[in-house]
Design a protein around this nucleic acid. Sequence first.
DNA 1: ATAATAAATAAAAATGATTGTTAATTACGG
DNA 2: CCGTAATTAACAATCATTTTTATTTATTAT
Lengths: 138, 138
Amino acid sequence: METIEKLTKTLRSHGMKITPQRLMIFKVLENNTSHPSAEDVYKRVKKVYPAVSFTTIYKTLETLRTLGEVREFTIDDDRKHYDPNTNTHHHAICSTCKKILDVFEDFSPHVKLPDFFKKDYTVSGFQISFFGTCKECN
Amino acid sequence: METIEKLTKTLRSHGMKITPQRLMIFKVLENNTSHPSAEDVYKRVKKVYPAVSFTTIYKTLETLRTLGEVREFTIDDDRKHYDPNTNTHHHAICSTCKKILDVFEDFSPHVKLPDFFKKDYTVSGFQISFFGTCKECN
DNA sequence: ATAATAAATAAAAATGATTGTTAATTACGG
DNA sequence: CCGTAATTAACAATCATTTTTATTTATTAT
């Protein structure tokens, strides 16, 4: 995810409008490492724009995803999570409180599919989920 | 997941009844490497027991999960998938057809969190999702 | 600036997966 | 067999998300 100036240019270059809602949703996500759900984002935006609708949150998150500004993912949960960090990284999920921590270690030199897989599958990337318990829940 | 005889004993030891529906759902899952959703299981069971209800499928899958007979997971999808193989293994997901392949390589010697994580998190296991394209979709 | 207009928004309804409720049915110990 | 508690099927409810529609707003050209 880039700066808000960069986002503004990206939106414009796609013929999209610069709206206060979009900017605020972007700001909520910017440098956010809490992996919020759509509802989490909604609550944060609502504090500043009480009239904002859930529809706008969903639509904007989808827009940002399409523009490559956020990554959407699910981890054994019934809702989607959004991560402004679109660089390759991994997650550690606390089985108790469901908090998601970022893991920036580069495992790519050690994580490769066996050769016989090459005829069946082309790998574009991989994602590791570490399950366990966080400090607070221990 | 064990044999049907083993399941029978497990159910009995938990004071649970041996019903045709439970046995059929188990059979559908047994040695099944297609990672079916609840709906997939429902369709398969319905062929033999046309009167079976979705409720029973969901309840039974939950029961089997509680008994440790199946593993439930989600991968960037809006439905849960069920895997009778509860041993540690990983998945390769085709971005096009969403088919999930099993990856039995043991990455545990090479996938460890950095030491500074030890004070923040206790790892109980990890799961790798390989994203890419399968043979048929290539 | 201002009006035209295409895009975005809010509100409301719809959808799809899953869960809860209830009354009827069934497995199984006595 | 019978009684009873567990399980089932049918149905309603819920929750996250998507779609629809009418209104509002950001932008572009006047």
